[in-house]
Design a binder for these strands. Structure first.
Lengths: 207, 207
DNA sequence: AAAATAAATTACCGATCGGTACACAAAGCC
DNA sequence: GGCTTTGTGTACCGATCGGTAATTTATTTT
């Protein structure tokens, strides 16, 4: 089984060289999947945005589903970088604020599709979507686990009330993040979401 | 232009009578759209669940898009009845609690698809989805406006802090509701969402 | 120069999509 | 009994879906 990922290929400079940049093509595919979801993105949409033909796409990325997973990996690596930064913040409140501010910025950026690709893809995948849902749920769970761990530490630090359930708080924060993503997808402005963040922070529990 | 809705037809008892119950068929269609979204629901899925053939469907409901709008109307009338009840609660806190408890019950019911049909449909509609998005956004805005009005009255009642922005609070509550819907769609249990509600209520502002 | 390798292009595959033409069946009106 | 009206079933429409076979083009290796 050949590996197909974009970041291998030591330098097999034999045969005709490809005429497109796989990195740029993958970014273009990410934009389509992000905007339209897995099912909503047709091969015609993808090839048009990537500037390549179908056989080139299949040779470089496997098939539509594998291309999607690679695009999702890139999305998480690039567009969700703020979540890893957020976990390093000194207080639970700062963690939550970094999460929410980062989410608002990512979801309402003027040079990217609105909303969260994970939310769009998890809610909008049909028959073969099991593999995609599994991917997103796994990603969500690992991210959630990290957040729970961070809140548990915060409680030990006296940074959160003892009676507060870290798991519940993590779910609560996640609900706000995903909810803002839904609102962003259906037309909410950046100011609207900033208002949500302000309110949520004003209610954030004090130690 | 003939009206096609299910609730007209005074009694045109001429011609062959139809052999299916439009109400039951519409409920079956609602179940499919709710579970799979607009694009994800194929005509084959719909006719199989409704127990009728395509020509019968087109004669009774117009086309796929019109069928969807009728299903969405029924969804709002039946499954979102708790929202109208919630607005009548005596305090802002009770309003929010009723909203959230009702949403959790509706989104994790064992005899209905998981999640919120509005969220699933708004995030998962492709090309012709503009009409659908418009329908959902309009519904959301009117519902949001009612909630803002209710919170403004609550603030006048001394039921909410004066400094709190009713519009922001409404968006905040909406974000939690839609976020829980996303979580429910991708596997969260009823207990998980109850935890979110508990936390959110524990933070709810006191006058 | 010839062979080998790999990408690009074109044209096509079967399956499924939403939607419909057409013939037939069941009822009321005359 | 027709005749009209309306719903049902079958079989089909063009378009699009994801995916591929076959050929040509470009480059490295011998």
């Amino acid at each position: 089984m050949e590996s197909i990922t974009t970041a291998d290929a030591p330098a097999p400079t034999r045969g005709r060289p490809r005429e497109f940049c796989p990195d740029a093509a993958l970014s273009a595919a990410l934009g389509i999947f992000w905007a339209k979801g897995y099912d909503g993105a047709s091969m015609a949409d993808l090839t048009a945005a990537m500037g390549i033909t179908k056989p080139s796409l299949y040779a470089a990325f496997g098939n539509k589903e594998q291309l999607f997973h690679q695009a999702l990996d890139r999305y998480e690596a690039e567009k969700l970088a703020y979540t890893r930064e957020a976990l390093k913040q000194p207080t639970a409140r700062a963690v939550a604020e970094h999460f929410m501010r980062g989410a608002v910025a990512a979801q309402t950026s003027t040079c990217d599709p609105k909303g969260c690709m994970g939310v769009i893809s998890a809610t909008a995948c049909g028959a073969e979507g099991d593999s995609i849902k599994a991917h997103i749920m796994q990603r969500r769970q690992s991210s959630n686990a990290a957040l729970v761990t961070r809140f548990e530490q915060a409680r030990q630090d006296g940074d959160l009330p003892q009676h507060l359930d870290p798991q519940g708080l993590a779910y609560y924060l996640y609900a706000i993040l995903q909810g803002m993503a839904v609102l962003a997808t259906s037309g909410a402005t950046r100011d609207d979401l900033d208002g949500v963040v302000t309110i949520a922070l004003s209610m954030w529990p004090t130690s």
